[in-house]
Structure formats: structure tokens, C-alpha cells
């Protein structure tokens, strides 16, 4: 009897906390949706409101009436983010695999170097980076934003920690006995096992790449190459007559694709494919 009471109390506590946190988490999205239906005037008079208004279409017109093309920006963002995420996830897994599955002389040195790179403040590195990109003429080239994703120290670090904790090395041995090549083993056996880790890191790197603004706006100066966040920042940059309604709409349109990718990958976060389970 006592135990049941305790468990009811526990549930009440859990749900109170969770619902409160959920409201906090959803609040900005609700505000974004509502504000994308309000006029600039309404937003300037009262920045946050829970009552939608009827200016969605006129905000859309403002957004589309600019000198840039949001559809194009959307496609550009997709190209960059999808490629960068694929590079990060695949090559980080490969590198982490090299660090965990094999014993080699320079392994620890290599790992230390990766850790060091992670620690350098990013703000100033960007100076050197974009100067280099200008020197080699890689401005207005998506590759300048995609290729660096191959070397993602944080993701490698995560993958390594994940594999250390839960990668069943026995599987490799049995694959070798079956005569599978090393690269094939990685692709056919290791990768599927790492799916949950890849999904989490995939979300993180997609979000980071999609939301990135500073480097793209410096490197992509041709307006047919603009990404969504650049376009939204242009709306905000119109300091004398800022169209807040259109900005919120732009922010909403920017966030929707991430939400879709997120919901697609979220099954791993929700259910998870227990790694060890494969062992059976």
C-alpha cells in the first residue's frame, strides 16, 4: 500500500516537472508561429502575444518580395547541411572506428591532437579559415562549407566514447573469421550497430550546419548561393524598416526542416536500439 502511494507521488512529481519543462521548450515555437501571423506593427507594439492575427499572407508577400529567392535559399541550405552532416557522421564513425578497433602506434597521439583541436576558441580560428578560403578561391563554393565537416573532433570524440562503452569487439573477430574485408566490416557490421549514436550526432551536426550564419555569410557572397539563415538575417539587417512579421515567418520556415529531420531521427532518441542487444 505504502509503496503504491510513493509511486503515485513519484509520478505526480515526474509529470509536473516534465510538463513544465515541455511548456518552456515549446514556448518559442508557439511564439514564432503566432508572430508569423501578426503584422510588424502588432509585434512592435507587443512583442509577445498568444493571440494569432491575420497577416500571414502579407508577411509571406514581404518575404517573397525581397531581392532574394527563399526557395533557392532553402535548396542551398539543404545541399550544404545534408552533405555536411553525411560527411561528419560517416567520417567521424570511420575515424572513431580506427581509434577503437585497431591498435596502432600513433593512436594516442592522434587522439590527443583531436582533443586539442576541440579546445581552441572558435572565434579567432574563423579569421584564418576565411582568409585561407579567399586565398584558394573557394568563396561562393559550397565545398568550403561541406569538406571541413569531415574533420569534426567533437563527433569523433563522442563516437569513440560510445564505442568504448558499448561496441562488441567479438563481432569483428567473427566477421574476420567469415573472411570479411576490414572496410566491408566497418560498413556492413560496425555502422549499423552505431545507428543510435549516428542519429544523435546527425541531429546535432545538421542543426549546427543549418543554423550556421557567420561563415556562410562571409564565404557566400553571390546571392544565388545564399542560405536560409542568411536571408533571414538580411531581413533583420534592414535596420530602418525592420519587417518583424516576415522575420518571424522566415525564422519559422528556417526551423521547420530541422524539425522534420529531427522527428525523423528521433525514433533513436525515443526507443533507441540498444547496442549490446545485438550481441544476443
Amino acid at each position: 500500500m505504502k509503496k503504491r502511494q510513493g509511486s503515485i507521488l513519484f509520478k505526480v512529481l515526474v509529470y509536473t516537472v516534465c510538463i513544465f519543462l515541455a511548456i518552456l521548450s515549446l514556448m518559442p515555437f508557439v511564439i514564432m508561429i503566432i508572430n508569423s501571423t501578426r503584422s510588424t506593427y502588432e509585434i512592435q507594439q507587443q512583442a509577445i502575444s498568444l493571440v494569432p492575427s491575420g497577416y500571414f499572407m502579407s508577411n509571406l508577400e514581404v518575404l517573397l518580395g525581397k531581392t532574394f529567392d527563399p526557395v533557392k535559399g532553402f535548396l542551398n541550405s539543404i545541399i550544404i547541411s545534408v552533405s555536411a552532416t553525411a560527411c561528419t557522421v560517416y567520417f567521424s564513425s570511420l575515424t572513431a572506428y580506427a581509434l577503437v578497433a585497431y591498435t596502432w602506434k600513433l593512436r594516442d597521439t592522434f587522439f590527443t591532437v583531436i582533443m586539442c583541436v576541440m579546445m581552441i576558441p572558435t572565434q579567432v580560428i574563423s579569421i584564418g579559415f576565411y582568409q585561407l578560403m579567399y586565398k584558394v578561391g573557394m568563396t561562393n563554393n559550397f565545398l568550403a562549407l561541406i569538406l571541413p565537416a569531415i574533420a569534426a573532433p567533437t563527433t569523433v570524440f563522442f563516437m569513440r566514447q560510445f564505442m568504448l562503452a558499448s561496441f562488441p569487439m567479438e563481432l569483428l573477430d567473427s566477421a574476420r573469421i567469415d573472411g570479411s574485408g576490414e572496410f566491408h566490416t566497418f560498413n556492413a557490421i560496425a555502422l549499423p550497430i552505431m545507428k543510435p549514436a549516428m542519429a544523435t550526432q546527425g541531429i546535432f551536426s545538421f542543426v549546427a550546419s543549418w543554423n550556421d550564419l557567420f561563415l556562410p555569410s562571409i564565404l557566400l557572397t553571390d546571392n544565388s548561393k545564399y542560405t536560409m539563415p542568411i536571408m533571414v538575417s538580411l531581413l533583420r539587417g534592414d535596420i530602418y524598416k525592420t519587417e518583424y512579421g516576415a522575420i518571424y515567418l522566415g525564422l519559422l520556415l528556417t526551423v521547420l526542416p530541422i524539425l522534420i529531420v529531427y522527428f525523423m531521427l528521433s525514433k533513436y532518441i525515443i526507443a533507441g536500439v540498444a547496442l549490446g542487444g545485438v550481441k544476443g
Binding site: 562571409i218 553571390d222 546571392n223 542568411i230
Partner: peptide, 25 residues
Amino acid sequence: ETIIATTDGAYQPALDQALAAGGED
């Protein structure tokens, strides 16, 4: 046209770099 918003501090670095780099673009 190249339009870069000033809001996030990107216009000046990009413009400075482009001016210093010279060339066709």
C-alpha cells in the same frame, strides 16, 4: 549584387576581405 546584413557583424569582415583580395569578384 552582394547583400550581407550588418546585424551579425558579417558585412564588414566580408567586405574588407573582398576589397583586400581584389580580382574579378
